[in-house]
Computed example of a mutant assay.
Amino acid sequence: MPAILVVDDDPGIVRLVRSYLEQAGFKAKSAFDGATARRLIRTERPDLVVLDLMLPDDDGFEIARALRSDPATANLPIIMLTARVDDTDRIVGLELGADDYIVKPFNPREVVARVRAVLRRAGGGAVVRNRIELGCLVLDLDAHQAWLAGHELELTPTEFALLSLFMRYPGHAFTRAELLEQGLGYAATGLERTVDSHIKNLRKKLDADPAAPVIETVYGVGYRLRNV
């Protein structure tokens, strides 16, 4: 039973999200401030964090940055939850390594669906070890590990899901909508541009030479993986 930590300073939102998560079969815990959230993440080790950006004592961006910079939590799936509607905030969150971003007000069923999609991308429930090897890139889908030229990559669940899709179909040009649906597990209009932020992060981890990126831009279409 995956454990989800819901972090928000609004008790009503926390109760609502926890109720729907528990009805869906998840084990849910809650925190109403950043200090409690950080402590529970260290001690309880949740499988995913639903993280509000506006907390009374902390900033969700700072918490996400700290989680991604700590090897113990670098791969912890994060879904950001916020009342902000500015695309800049969404892009900043994704560039910090958030796996998804939900704007208030929201349908709690959507939160459950997003949690399931992100956990699937994180590799939960795999029972047969299998690997994808393409040139100097290697993915172990069961262990949820990736290597480039023998060096292990620290990938978020979303980055891992995108890379595994690219490696299954090298040379194929995917549209942003296809990457959302086939790689990330859901279709949503208006979110295609968020793929750009995930690709930007992935390129930083893959590319020694920015002039010859492993993931190429196909203008007017989307992205494809070149031979490596």
Rank of each mutant, 00 (worst) to 15 (best):
L21G: 02
E22C: 01
F26Y: 10
K29F: 11
F32W: 06
D33H: 10
A35I: 04
A37D: 08
A37W: 11
R38S: 11
R38N: 00
R38F: 01
R39S: 14
R39H: 10
R39T: 12
L40M: 13
I41M: 09
I41G: 02
T43M: 07
T43Y: 03
E44A: 07
R45I: 10
R45H: 14
R45D: 15
P46N: 07
P46Q: 10
D47E: 09
D47Q: 15
V49G: 05
D52W: 03
L53K: 01
L53V: 09
M54P: 08
M54I: 08
P56Q: 02
P56C: 08
E62M: 13
I63S: 04
I63M: 04
I63A: 04
R68T: 06
D70R: 10
P71K: 00
A72S: 13
A72I: 13
T73P: 10
T73Q: 07
P77V: 07
P77I: 14
M80W: 12
T82G: 01
R84H: 07
I91Q: 09
I91G: 03
V92N: 13
V92L: 13
L94F: 04
L94K: 01
L96Y: 01
L96S: 05
D99E: 08
D99C: 05
V103S: 11
V103C: 06
V103L: 07
K104I: 01
N107E: 12
P108L: 09
E110D: 08
R114W: 11
R114T: 11
A117G: 09
A117L: 05
L119S: 05
L119V: 14
A122F: 02
A122S: 12
G123S: 04
G123H: 05
G124E: 13
G124Y: 10
G125H: 03
A126W: 04
V127F: 14
V128R: 12
V128H: 14
I132K: 06
I132Y: 01
I132N: 01
L134D: 05
V138Y: 04
L141I: 02
D142S: 08
Q145E: 15
Q145C: 06
Q145F: 00
H151K: 14
H151P: 00
L155Q: 12
L155H: 07
